[in-house]
């Protein structure tokens, strides 16, 4: 266990999670679809540069890849969404588990997301195996 690496991964992961769910809803509220599309390039890229290009998320070569997306998903699930509305200012767009939101409402979404992602994971495995 390397605690410094875990700590750095935690801070960089929190940057990704917090950044995505403040900047993204705010860009969406201000510039609609274009804002959402631009927000992806702005915040995801910044977080990716720190987490995976420089390597703050401590991934090692021969182990299964842990993406910063884990932090991002968990941050929204726990803390909800915050939006800077052009008219009404900074306000909450969604509640998270920390507010006492009911996980049951999201369970089916999570289940079907995982099914889709598992199929995609198998495709990726299959393609890599056949390319190599």
């Amino acid at each position: 266990m390397n605690f410094n690496k875990i700590l750095i991964g935690m801070c960089a992961g929190a940057f990704a999670g917090f950044g995505v769910f403040t900047i993204w809803p705010s860009c969406l509220a201000r510039w609609n679809w274009l804002g959402g599309w631009l927000a992806a390039g702005i915040i995801i890229t910044s977080a990716w540069l720190i987490n995976h290009y420089v390597g703050a998320m401590p991934n090692k070569g021969n182990y299964a890849w842990i993406d910063m997306a884990l932090s991002i998903w968990l941050a929204a699930l726990l803390g909800g969404l915050v939006v800077l509305d052009p008219v009404e200012g900074l306000q909450r767009a969604a509640y998270g588990l920390l507010h006492g939101a009911n996980l049951g409402g999201a369970l089916l979404t999570i289940l079907f997301q995982l099914i889709g992602a598992t199929i995609a994971g198998y495709f990726l495995y299959y393609l890599r195996r056949n390319d190599a």
Partner: peptide, 11 residues
């Protein structure tokens, strides 16, 4: 809420 983002599937 709670919001289940598409980030889950990326991970």
């Amino acid at each position: 809420g709670p919001w289940s983002d598409m980030a889950l599937v990326a991970f």
